[in-house]
């Protein structure tokens, strides 16, 4: 694995705002004081490189549980590359993802108030390693939308998939969400629209892969590249 050796601060408008007026948890959990600037040292530019020794991978097929019956819903194929800021592939990195089932319900105890049904054939979580091109791929079910009821503004979360990405340094650690193209609920989502920059929001929406370009005929294909912080260029004086 080649490794980025320095990191820059985030470009602010490309990242979400921290406080969202109608998203109550963001007001209760965000610090009231601004963060302190600190120098970046070795601890921040290093990170775990062999995470597969701790985190079991090879969980790419979310469409079945233990090779059992297929989960309910539209089969989807989600693939893309994990890249750094130079566009170089990040290899052998752990990617975790999780999502609601086709009815919009998570297999999680915190989703207890949701009246939508569980699907016994769907756990909704997977984990894999990126390959030599930085590519990942998952077979899954198109997630349903779900309501966020306990807020000043009730709203529907559009269909989305959560991603947890490690990269090669503690500063490249990224938690994000992937949205689907052409979904009307995208326009009203408080979280997607917390990203001020339109190009930033576009980076969160997957691209549909035409059927003729997909090797399989049983799933709707989506391509979604993920970019983590980090450069391979050598900074002055290193």
């Amino acid at each position: 694995m080649t490794t980025p050796n320095f990191f820059e601060a985030y470009d602010e408008p490309s990242q979400p705002v921290i406080r969202i007026a109608q998203y109550r948890e963001s007001l209760l959990r965000s610090p009231s004081r601004p963060p302190y600037k600190r120098p970046v040292t070795l601890t921040e530019i290093t990170g775990p490189l062999n995470l597969a020794r701790k985190l079991k991978t090879g969980m790419n097929d979310l469409s079945r549980v233990n090779n059992g019956a297929r989960a309910m819903g539209q089969l989807i194929w989600v693939t893309g590359r994990l890249l750094d800021e130079d566009g170089m592939p990040v290899r052998g990195s752990v990617i975790e993802l999780w999502q609601a089932n086709a009815a919009g319900r998570y297999a999680h105890k915190a989703d207890s108030q949701n009246p939508a049904p569980h699907d016994p054939n769907f756990l909704g979580s997977g984990r894999c390693l990126t390959d030599q091109e930085g590519r990942y791929a998952f077979l899954s079910i198109k997630p349903g939308a779900y309501p966020v009821p306990n807020h000043a503004a009730r709203w529907w979360r559009p269909p989305h998939i959560h991603f947890s990405i490690f990269g090669e340094g503690f500063m490249s650690r990224l938690i994000t969400q992937m949205y689907f193209p052409g979904e009307p609920l995208n326009a009203a989502d408080l979280l997607l629209n917390a990203v001020p920059d339109e190009k930033g929001r576009e980076r969160l929406v997957a691209k549909w892969i035409p059927m003729m370009q997909l090797e399989r005929a049983d799933a709707v294909g989506f391509e979604h590249d993920l970019v983590v912080r980090g450069h391979r260029a050598t900074p002055m004086g290193f």
Binding site: Y10, D11, S14, Q15, P16, E25, S26, K54, L55, K56, L83, D84, E85, D86, G87, M88, E96, W98, A100, Y106, A107, H108, K109, A110, D111, L123, G124, S125, R127, H162, S164, L174, I175, T176, Q177, L191, V195, K199, G200, R201, R203, L204, L226, V227, V228, R229
Partner: peptide, 25 residues
């Protein structure tokens, strides 16, 4: 090489899978 902008961060939300927390983690 083409310069890329990092993917925007989002909240982890309340539903990070319990099975992702391993005993030894």
């Amino acid at each position: 090489v083409k310069k890329r902008t990092p993917t925007p961060s989002h909240t982890v939300g309340p539903f990070f899978p319990a099975r992702f927390f391993g005993e030894g983690d």
